[in-house]
Nucleic acid binder design. Structure first.
Length: 387
DNA sequence: GGGAGACCTAGTAA
DNA sequence: ATTACTAGGTCTC
């Protein structure tokens, strides 16, 4: 078992003690944006504005914020959270890079920026929030700070030499605790798709939510509620480039609306089930198969040993975990086989281990890893491992 | 039960 | 310049 008590304790302390210790010198970086803000078809917004002028885009006079000012330190250090290995690695498509080592996103109703400070720690800054205290709680929750990354990594390192080596280069790759609805809809968009287009699709849906502000050239919105999502037609989604996933969104939103307890509550309840039950429940939604279900389970439902098995993970697994299957083709049936192998090797937090191994396979990371980590990838020609 | 095909689309490789 | 294939899969025969 894992003892993260001290860690939680220190966090609690952090929360309780009003930082009277004069605020960090804070490397403030107003996010001047070299980025151009993504564009969405504007027509949809106007269409729906007329239908339901409610809380959609009631853009209070454009709050254009800069994350200047103070970065409040989380006091957890880089080993607990390194932003570039946590945010742009496929867990969420809602956060944007708004500066050097700086990412901005929305948690519930709160618009927040995070920045890796010069001392390695992470600082946060709320742009738009009505209650600083609840925003902070939401942030800690979202960052999954109740779990000590370094503690669980210690166990992985002991049992796996390769993990140990990779970990020294890829410190701070944390698993987030996202909102289940947001996570579900995002990964519905992800099937058989690439990050660029997924991001575009997620941006489109996000823009239906309440506008919160602009940071670094990006507009940020609360994630739209189920009823708001239900107002979009399949045709509109297709026109927005969703392809066949349009009907997944429509179908899933309808299914959620029809839940007796309400879709939100139904989703929230999945956090209390065991992994298999949660995955089965998710898979009852159109467009949710084993891979997507595992992503949602791991990234939003506290199912820390869920393993999203895709082609990459299949490669990893057949190379290092179940070499007897190397060379064979990946089929959905083998999903559970792979997942089992990961859990067997890494235990309760296998999903967290998988996350690091997955990140190590990304082209962006391969580039900065010593070449010996890449050798085995080409094929199993020279699987020269420790023998 | 499980193995092929089809499905949207943009980007890259032949 | 076309064609084929891939990319964080799922659904349907």
């Amino acid at each position: 078992m894992l003892q993260s008590n001290q860690f939680v304790a220190s966090l609690t302390k952090l929360r309780i003690m009003k930082r009277k210790t004069s605020s960090q010198p804070a490397s403030s970086t107003p996010p001047s944006s070299p980025h151009q803000s993504p564009h969405f078809p504007v027509k949809l917004n106007s269409i729906f504005d007329s239908k339901k002028p409610k809380n959609i885009l009631k853009n209070s006079p454009a709050i254009t914020t800069k994350a200047s000012g103070e970065w409040v330190p989380l006091s957890i250090g880089k080993s607990e959270l390194y932003l570039p290995l946590t945010f742009p690695t496929g867990q969420t498509f809602r956060w944007k890079e708004t500066g050097p080592l700086q990412y901005t996103g929305v948690i519930g109703p709160h618009l927040v920026s995070l920045k890796q400070l010069e001392n390695g720690d992470v600082g946060y800054h709320f742009h738009h929030t009505e209650c600083e205290e609840s925003a902070r709680l939401a942030l800690f929750d979202f960052l999954n700070l109740g779990i000590s990354l370094s503690e669980i990594w210690e166990e992985f390192k002991v049992s796996d030499l390769r993990f140990c080596e990779l970990a020294s280069y890829l410190e701070g790759a944390r698993v987030l605790r996202q909102d289940p609805l947001e996570c579900l809809i995002q990964f519905l968009c992800s099937s058989n798709n690439n990050i660029g287009r997924i991001t575009k699709m997620v941006n489109f849906l996000s823009s239906l939510g309440k506008y919160l502000g602009n940071v670094g050239g990006y507009d940020f919105h609360e994630f739209p509620e189920i009823n708001r999502l239900a107002m979009v037609s399949e045709t509109e989604l297709r026109e927005a480039g969703f392809g066949y996933r349009a009907k997944y969104i429509i179908g899933t939103v309808e299914a959620l609306q029809s839940k007796p307890s309400g879709g939100l509550q139904w989703l929230a309840a999945l956090r209390k089930l065991n992994l298999e039950e949660a995955v089965d429940a998710l898979a009852s939604l159109p467009g949710v198969g084993p891979k997507v279900a595992a992503c949602i389970a791991l990234f939003s439902l506290d199912q820390h040993h869920a393993i999203p098995v895709d082609t990459h993970v299949w490669q990893i697994a057949t190379q290092y975990l179940i070499p007897e299957l190397s060379g064979t083709r990946f089929t959905p049936k083998l999903c559970s086989r792979v997942a089992d192998a990961f859990v067997c090797k890494y235990g309760k937090y296998a999903g967290w281990a998988q996350t690091l191994l997955f990140i190590a396979e990304l082209p962006s990371q391969k580039a900065i890893l010593p070449s010996r980590f890449c050798d085995a990838e080409k094929g199993n020609v020279a699987t020269a491992r420790q023998e």
